[in-house]
């Protein structure tokens, strides 16, 4: 799975004794506790490395799969300005995927290996992208809600302990701000438009609200990885904390739009100064995780077709580079 090369410096080396390893772990944790960054060449526990590879690559896969539900509307964007903005947004998402694959590659895994895991179904990506975008309003809802939730998740990671991941997140967060704004602007235009447009916007909100809440992951009580990830400062806030923050920020935005959040139990709680909201139906989430969502197959199929269909192109580029190298060597 990971590099089997001899150059496995820094890994949980078999050559270190139990005492040496304990000391290394202690120093590592002290660095993390002191908010110092861990960089690629530093010693790190195998489990830390593996957790990061999993988390960063899942994030990267989500970005590139996320290009598809919105990319679906590039050719049908209803104005030239919307077309340009959407192209730029989807392009950004591809770029974000690249920054994250770059960060993951510093941990000893190659992008090709990660892509292989995605295409065989071995790797996960954010389940939100397994929902369809049947209308233009879904593009607005994704920008407003999904990117909004993503931003909430991402900002704390800018302070994560692993340097390359933190730096990638800083870059991503800088670029993300226009994504959410363009989504909200689309929703606003629709909400203030014709009756059909208003209906389109409301139905999109109905479709995307609960999946967006599920983006923050399982409730803290049932979340396996949270405690250790928080100790390693890979995760800075819990799932429920972020989800609550998202609801508190987003409900007033929906009210501004004049749209109704599809939750009969939603109410402002004066005492706690938070919105109380209904119970999430995790069975739908489980279905999607198990691969039975509306678009799971299509998303992976699309990525596979692109990757396999493009193999001849990538090979040709390498073949040409090799020919040039030989010609240059001869000429020298």
């Amino acid at each position: 799975m990971y590099t089997q090369g001899l150059d496995s410096l820094g890994a949980d080396c078999l050559h270190t004794s139990a005492e040496e390893r304990a000391a290394l772990e202690q120093r590592f944790q002290a660095k993390v506790d002191a908010e110092e960054r861990i960089e690629p060449k530093d010693w790190m526990p195998d489990a830390y490395r593996q957790t990061l590879v999993r988390q960063i690559s899942q994030h990267a896969h989500s970005e590139i799969v996320g290009m598809l539900p919105e990319g679906n509307w590039i050719t049908r964007a209803p104005s030239l300005r919307r077309k340009a903005v959407l192209m730029a947004k989807v392009q950004d998402e591809g770029g974000h995927g690249m920054y994250l694959y770059s960060a993951a590659e510093t941990l000893g895994v190659s992008r090709d290996e990660l892509l292989e895991q995605l295409l065989t179904g071995a790797a996960k990506y954010s389940s939100i992208f397994n929902y369809p975008t049947p209308t233009w309003a879904d593009v607005g809802a994704i920008g407003w809600l999904v990117d909004g939730a993503a931003i909430m998740n991402q900002i704390p990671i800018c302070k994560c302990s692993y340097g390359p991941y933190a730096r990638a997140m800083v870059r991503i967060c800088k670029e993300e701000s226009f994504h959410q704004r363009q989504g909200f602007e689309i929703m606003m235009t629709l909400a203030r438009g014709t009756p059909e447009q208003r209906r389109m916007a409301q139905e999109a909100l109905d479709r995307w609200w609960w999946p967006s809440l599920m983006m923050f992951g399982p409730n803290d009580a049932t979340s396996k990885h949270t405690a250790q990830s928080m100790r390693w400062k890979i995760k800075r806030f819990t799932n429920d904390e972020l989800r609550q923050k998202f609801v508190d920020i987003t409900v007033p935005q929906a009210e501004f739009l004049g749209l109704r959040v599809p939750d009969a139990e939603l109410r402002w709680d004066e005492a706690s100064q938070h919105y109380r909201f209904g119970t999430i139906d995790w069975s739908e989430f489980q279905q999607i995780l198990a691969g039975n969502g509306p678009c799971n197959r299509e998303r992976i199929e699309a990525r596979r077709r692109a990757h396999e269909g493009g193999a001849w192109v990538r090979e040709a580029a390498l073949a040409h580079a090799e020919k040039r190298r030989l010609r240059d060597a001869k000429a020298a």
Binding site: Y2, T3, Q4, G5, D7, S8, L9, G10, P40, K41, E105, T106, L107, G108, V109, S110, D112, E113
Partner: peptide, 9 residues
């Protein structure tokens, strides 16, 4: 040594 542990090297 090399800065990153890339199997592609």
């Amino acid at each position: 040594d090399k800065v990153y542990r890339h199997p592609t090297f």
